[in-house]
Simulated assay, not measured.
Amino acid sequence: MDTSQPTRLTALAVVGAPVLMALYGGIRLLDGSREPGPGWLVGHTLMLLGLALFAPVLAALGRASGPRRTAGGRAGLRAALAVAFAGLAASLGQIGIDLYVGAVAVDKADQHRLFDELQSRPGVLPVFYSVGPLLFYVGLLALLVAASVGAGRVLRWWSPVLMLAGTVLTAADLAFIPVAAVCYLLALAPLAGFGAGRRPALA
């Protein structure tokens, strides 16, 4: 079996992860969605599912980029995968904390109190909020660069550029999450065979 070929799960993840991310970003723009209630819970649940779908995306990037690399290149690829998965785990942890707070808080003031209480615990803020999630984007960008260079590339130069642009937009203002999601979808689409002159494998 050619592991560089996209699978049904890869195609689902490539489309599903950005779409769920965009839905979260859209819900986040609605009134009342940033305080305890249905908007907070639904939005964060969608984001949790979207992040989870990035796991098969990362695995597919590793499979697609690895076979034609030297031993040193494969070691670098494994390092990028480890960084990306560590960051993804931290991001999932962050959303899990946010969901918990949104589920148990009785109002906005209680929400702030719970966040302050949780984030003041040793390691929580850097691991799940300030440093840990950043590793996901660093690792993902490295994987996209690896998949867009060399003779065996499966992506084009604009994939890491789009991913970086989307990430910068969300760092500047979370209101740009839906726009960033479109950037991510376009960046990852060739990984699933869309727009790359081939159809995704369905087996």
Rank of each mutant, 00 (worst) to 15 (best):
G72A: 13
G73I: 06
G73Y: 05
G73F: 06
R74N: 12
R74S: 03
R74A: 02
A75F: 12
A75K: 14
A75Q: 14
L77I: 03
R78W: 08
R78F: 01
R78E: 10
A79R: 11
A79E: 00
A79M: 07
A80N: 03
L81A: 07
A82N: 06
A82W: 11
V83Y: 00
V83D: 02
V83S: 04
A84W: 01
A84M: 01
F85Q: 00
F85A: 06
A86N: 02
A86P: 01
G87R: 03
L88G: 08
L88Q: 06
L88T: 12
A89L: 15
A89D: 12
A89Q: 08
A90E: 01
A90Q: 04
A90F: 02
S91L: 02
L92Y: 05
Q94L: 14
I95R: 11
G96N: 08
G96R: 11
G96V: 09
G96W: 08
D98C: 04
L99Q: 14
Y100Q: 08
Y100E: 13
Y100M: 13
V101F: 08
V101R: 05
A103I: 08
A103Q: 09
A103G: 12
A103W: 12
V104N: 09
V104M: 06
A105T: 08
A105K: 10
A105C: 10
A105H: 11
V106F: 04
D107C: 11
D107I: 09
K108N: 08
K108P: 00
K108W: 03
K108Q: 13
A109N: 12
D110V: 01
D110Y: 04
Q111Y: 14
H112A: 15
R113K: 10
R113H: 13
L114S: 07
L114F: 11
D116V: 03
D116M: 02
E117Q: 14
E117W: 11
E117G: 00
L118I: 15
Q119L: 14
Q119P: 00
S120D: 14
S120W: 11
S120C: 04
R121V: 13
R121H: 13
R121P: 04
P122K: 03
P122N: 06
G123H: 08
V124Y: 01
V124S: 07
L125Q: 12
P126I: 11
P126M: 10
V127S: 05
V127Q: 00
V127G: 06
V127H: 02
F128V: 05
F128K: 01
F128L: 15
F128W: 02
Y129R: 02
Y129N: 08
S130F: 11
S130D: 14
S130V: 09
V131I: 15
V131R: 02
V131K: 05
G132W: 08
G132A: 07
P133H: 07
L134E: 13
L134V: 14
L135V: 05
L135A: 15
F136K: 00
F136N: 01
Y137F: 15
Y137C: 00
Y137L: 06
Y137M: 02
V138Y: 01
V138S: 01
G139R: 05
L140V: 09
A142K: 02
A142M: 07
L143G: 04
L144V: 03
L144W: 04
V145I: 15
A146W: 09
A147T: 05
S148T: 11
S148D: 11
S148G: 13
S148C: 09
V149F: 07
V149K: 12
V149I: 15
G150Y: 03
G150A: 06
G150Q: 09
A151F: 03
A151V: 10
A151R: 14
G152V: 13
G152S: 10
R153W: 02
